[in-house]
Each structure stands twice: as structure tokens, then as C-alpha cells.
Amino acid sequence: KPHAVTARTVIPRGVINMLALLGWNPGTEQEIFSMQELIDNFSLERVSKSGARFQPDKAKWFNAQYMHHKSDAELAALYQPILREHGIEVSDELAGRAAGIMKERATFITDLWDLTSFFFVAPTQYDEKQAKKYWKGDNPAMLRELREVLAGIDDFSLENTERIVHGWIEQKGYSLGQVMNTLRLALVGAGKGPGMYDVTSFIGKEETLRRIDNLLRNLKPGE
């Protein structure tokens, strides 16, 4: 997928790191350098005499590495303008938390909206392939049962919800994959995203139940 490379898209330190290595070789396998490390290690003797060759894929790799190492607070500052463009007004804490959960899958800051939009916007459509695979048979009834389990949880933290739901799945003898993928369809609308308890703890109990109700009400199960 092509990207329009802009000042907002790239991490400046990643660009500096990449440019430094275009015509200079440190003599080691190290590729990620802090600014001070570049200053300390640079020498004219290791500058290549041949022409430097720009590699777009390597540039993307550098950008991804620098983004993956940013803190949630740093990511929030970069991601908030994109969220506001989509009409999302949230705290820096929530913006950074969403970005932090999914940053390992992103190359550019602008990738984050596609990767995290479901944290902020409930699905209004459901992926046809996922629905055909999971919204059939016993799964709708199983999701109704799961809704009741979730409704009875007071501490909706990731760890506590996971403990209670997994205990219920084991007790009922259900397939973990069937339960989680059916829940993913309800909460995300597609077969993507992080672990489901990352999603439930982020959107909270009320929104989790509302999204389950939306699926139960709006999508007819398959045969």
C-alpha cells in the first residue's frame, strides 16, 4: 500500500538514522543509533566512495523501529491530530494506550487509524467472511450466554475478565477459538485487532455489552 510521505508520517530520528547509514558504515551489525552514538562512531574513513542507494523498504523499516520504541505519551502526541480528523476527541491517555497496543503492527503513524479505529467507533458492518464463518450454528446462543457472563463482572480489567471468561469456557466445554472469534465479530466487526481482552478493557463493560447487543439484533445468523 503506497504512503504519502510527509513530516507527519515519518519519525524524524528514523530519517536521520537512515540517512547516516546511506553513505557510512559503522563496521558492525548495529543499525539503530542514537544521535550521540552517531556522533561518537562517525568517521570519514568509513564513508563509502561509491554512490549511496536509497531503499524505500529500508526507510520504512527504520521508521517502524523508531515508532515501536516510542512511549504511549509520545505516540499520543503524534496520533491525536489524526484522531481529531476522524472526529474523535479523547484524552491523551486513551490515544496513547490505543496506539501503544497496536504500534508493533504499524510502519507509519498514519497506519494507526486503520489499526485502532474499532477502539473508538463501534462496527456498523460486519466482515462477510468472518460472519459466514462464525455467525452460525450454536455461536449466537453462545454469545448470548457470554453476554450474561460479562454483564455479571464488576471488575472489568483485562486480567479479571480473562480469568472469569476462560473459566466459563472451560466449564461449558466450549471452543476458545469459536467464543473469541464470535466476540471479535461483535466488538471489532472483522477478523483483526489485538487480544479480545485488550479490546474489552479499553472500551469498557457498557460498550462491550452494547456492541454484542448490536450484533445479536442486527445480523441474521447463517445456516
Rank of each mutant, 00 (worst) to 15 (best):
L216P: 13
L215V: 11
S48M: 12
R97C: 08
G100Y: 12
P56K: 08
Q55P: 02
A190N: 13
V121H: 07
E89Q: 14
L209T: 01
A73P: 00
A76T: 10
Q30S: 04
F108M: 12
R163F: 07
G222Y: 15
E223D: 14
L75Y: 04
E45F: 12
T110S: 15
F42P: 06
L115A: 07
K49I: 09
G167Y: 11
N139M: 10
P140N: 07
M102S: 05
T116P: 07
Y79R: 04
H69M: 11
S117K: 15
Q178I: 10
I153W: 00
I101D: 01
K49R: 10
I32R: 09
A190P: 11
E148G: 15
G100I: 15
R13L: 14
D40H: 06
I39H: 05
A151W: 00
T6I: 11
K172H: 09
H69I: 02
L22Y: 04
P56T: 10
S91P: 09
P123A: 07
E207S: 02
F108I: 08
F156K: 03
I153K: 00
Q171M: 11
V149F: 07
L187K: 10
Y134M: 12
L44N: 02
M180S: 03
F202V: 02
G189H: 00
N139Y: 09
G177E: 10
L219F: 03
E45M: 12
G193W: 01
L19K: 01
S91I: 12
D92V: 01
